[in-house]
Design a protein around this nucleic acid. Structure first.
Length: 641
RNA sequence: CGCGGGGUGGAGCAGCUGGUAGCUUACCGGGCUCAUAACCCGGACGUCGUAGGUCCGAAUCCUACCCCCGCAACCA
């Protein structure tokens, strides 16, 4: 029997353990977990994979800064990630780490398959090199000013020998794949990807020799593989593909590949819908059925980032509100594929209104009444009356609506349907007014029917919410006395509870004092103490070389050919200069006029998009690129030192 | 003309394979007392960014424009 079960293979991205995970990673993993649990409940043979992508320059550097080996560095962070998933009871079947031998050997094998196919060639990769840091940077990383993102010093254009994958060769097939309409969702991403292909695919650089924390290229020991092959192939290597001589069977590959769904963030949709299928085309293996790009959780209207200090730590929220409340909120509040605003207030509102008021309170009042009116035992029902039929109908058909939404990963709508049943049940209590029935012995039969229906409705709810909140499901079942394991088929029935013994327990979701919680959450996120000095020490002579002078901006305008640049004319009391700054995001030109400033005036002149900049204005610069002028009260042209 | 997303009652969102706008919350009024000051009912509040167009009919399709926000080869 179980041999014939339909399989369902779902993956999350493998996360990059350069820092601890935040709520965004949790969001993605929670969705995958809910889907995996749902499919298991529906009877599928589910394989759920998550893991970590542990190689690369950034991790090598972080480890170096910390004075540990890269392996030791990632081990510690991965340990934290696994603990987080354990706390949240993420039901993954396998956790793959790209530093594991089972993965590395297989990636090398995949490389060789592509190489032997003639899809990999040696070429030169062009980029920017920072000699003091010995780091290689891409065009984007070096930015318009061509400086090292790390130390801020100028970088030189440089060539690095590297291996390339003939991505361009697959452009037509990829376009066809995307136009098929089934592969990539949501659909809005499809046009984006086709547009990207249409502007011309370049071959992909897949190796690096400027760092060595990676999987060695099998045919050239000077190189390690760049993220593409290394990370993307995890989805197969974890299943034991390809067969290599290490005793791990590829049975799982035969069974579960191709993947049903790769769940990914919108920023890596491109890699999963272009590079990944191209790789698979090269090694002639089946393509995943679907790539799903989910949206981001935005904080204060912007992306969460460490430098802004607005990273939301899931551990804090779990400690305070519990795993289920957090999962419910994440799944209920946001629409798959779209960005959503995360605020503590939105979260606490959901927890209070939906969980405490609607569900928690319903459980509480139901169990209390059955104890009070029926001696704690769920009675048999009499004939339907009044709203009985409507309640039953809504409850026993809810699974259909939930399934329909889950097929589209519309977790929010699935939960909304379940909550419609919960609300209907609350309403049912009002309509039937059991406390009135209880006063008249002649109405005992009717009272029993109502109590029975309430217990059944709650039992169905306990089944339906299982994939999303299995603890809550269990707690409800305990309180209403539902026996046995959760079974999807039971969501279709309305007569399982007669004779069950209810037992009032703690409130499953205590009501929160939102104002107080908001205050405490705010206090918790008190900014971590940052060291004042973040750069290497310099000699006094080095400092002496910098010529700082005061001045006043007398003219300001946008750079005609650049979005981020403002062109200032600055008066230094005698001499007037043109200085360009990348601060268009922080100021409007007109509001800068008359601004007193401090400038470095012995910086070598530099052309910026066709206009010369003669010096540099000083700003207090937030890491999120919000600038504030360093002001002075001195007259123009005064030496600063 | 770089690419993309979005602009819907006070707030946050859904609707967008076209047929006179829906959900949660807040607000006002009422009901109930089994329950976690919860629950239930009713009400007010929107010319669906702007201007055109297609159509018997558009928030939903087309065109132009305005305003926010991301991305521009690796931060879910």
């Amino acid at each position: 029997m179980s041999e014939d079960k339909k399989t369902f293979y779902i993956t999350t991205p493998i996360y990059y353990p350069s820092d601890n995970l935040h709520i965004g990673h949790t969001y993605c993993t929670v969705m995958a977990d809910a889907m995996a649990r749902f499919k298991r409940l529906e009877g599928y043979d589910v394989r759920f994979l998550t893991g970590t992508d542990e190689h690369g320059q950034k991790i090598q550097e972080k480890a170096k800064d910390k004075g540990v080996t890269p392996q030791a560095y990632v081990d510690e962070i991965v340990d934290g990630i696994k603990k987080l998933w354990a706390t949240m009871e993420i039901s993954y079947d396998d956790f793959i780490r790209t530093t594991e031998p089972r993965h590395m050997k297989r990636v090398q094998d995949i490389f060789m398959r592509m190489y032997n196919k003639g899809d990999i060639y040696k070429g030169a990769y062009e980029g920017w090199y920072c000699t003091p840091c010995e780091s290689f940077w891409t065009d984007t990383q070096a930015g318009e000013n061509h400086v090292c993102p790390d130390c801020g010093r100028p970088v030189q254009k440089a060539h690095e020998e590297a291996y390339f994958f003939k991505l361009s060769k697959y452009a037509d097939k990829l376009r066809e794949l995307l136009k098929g309409g089934e592969f990539l969702q949501p659909e809005t991403r499809v046009n984006e990807m086709i547009g990207f292909i249409d502007q011309g695919l370049e071959d992909l650089c897949i190796s690096r020799s400027s760092f060595d924390w990676g999987i060695p290229v099998p045919i050239d020991e000077k190189h390690v593989m760049y993220v593409w092959l290394d990370a993307l192939s995890n989805y197969m290597t974890a299943l034991g593909y390809p067969e290599v001589d290490d005793g791990i069977s590829s049975e799982n590959y035969k069974k579960y590949w191709p993947a049903d769904y790769h769940l990914v963030g919108k920023e890596i949709v491109r890699f999963h819908s272009i590079i990944w299928p191209a790789m698979l085309m090269s090694i002639e293996e089946p393509l995943p059925k679907h790539v799903l790009g989910h949206g981001w959780l935005l904080i204060d209207g912007g992306k969460m980032s460490k430098s802004k200090g607005n990273v939301v730590d899931p551990v804090v929220l779990i400690d305070r509100y519990g795993v289920d409340a957090l999962k419910y909120f994440l799944l209920r509040e946001y629409t798959f594929g779209q960005d959503g605003a995360f605020t503590n207030e939105v979260m606490l509102n959901r927890m209070n209104f939906d969980l405490a008021n609607d569900l928690g309170n319903l459980v509480s009042r139901t169990v209390s009444m059955i104890e009070k009116y029926c001696g704690g035992v769920v009675p048999a029902a009499g004939a339907d009356e009044g709203p009985d039929a409507e309640l039953k109908e809504m409850a026993v058909t809810c699974y259909e609506r939930v399934s329909k939404h889950m097929d589209k990963f519309a977790f929010n709508l699935a939960l909304e349907e379940i909550w419609a049943v919960i609300r209907r049940t609350n309403k049912y209590i009002d309509e039937t007014a059991p406390w009135v029935l209880a006063k008249d012995e002649a109405l005992k039969g009717r009272l029993d029917t109502v109590m029975h229906n309430l217990a059944e409705a709650l039992r169905i709810v306990s089944v339906l919410i299982y994939p999303f909140m299995h603890h809550t499901s269990a707690e409800i079942r305990k309180q209403i006395g539902a026996e046995g394991d959760v079974n999807w088929e039971d969501a279709k029935l309305f007569d399982k509870m007669v004779g069950a013994t209810v037992k009032k327990g703690e409130a499953i979701f205590p009501r929160l004092d939102i104002a107080k919680e908001l205050e405490e959450l705010e206090a918790l996120k008190a900014a971590p103490v940052k060291p004042v000095c973040t750069k290497e020490l310099i000699e006094f002579d080095d400092f002496e070389k910098i010529d700082l002078k005061t001045g006043t901006i007398i003219k300001a305008e946008k750079h005609p050919k650049a979005d981020k640049l403002l062109v200032f004319q600055v008066d230094f009391g005698g001499e007037q200069r043109q200085i360009i700054s990348g601060v268009a995001g922080s100021f409007k030109p007109e509001e800068c006029i008359g601004q007193k400033v401090v400038a470095v005036v012995n910086l070598k002149p530099r052309m910026l998009r066709g206009l010369e900049s003669n010096g540099m204005l000083l700003y207090a610069c937030g890491e999120d690129h919000s600038y504030k002028f360093v002001e002075t009260k001195a007259d123009n042209g005064i030496e600063v030192g």
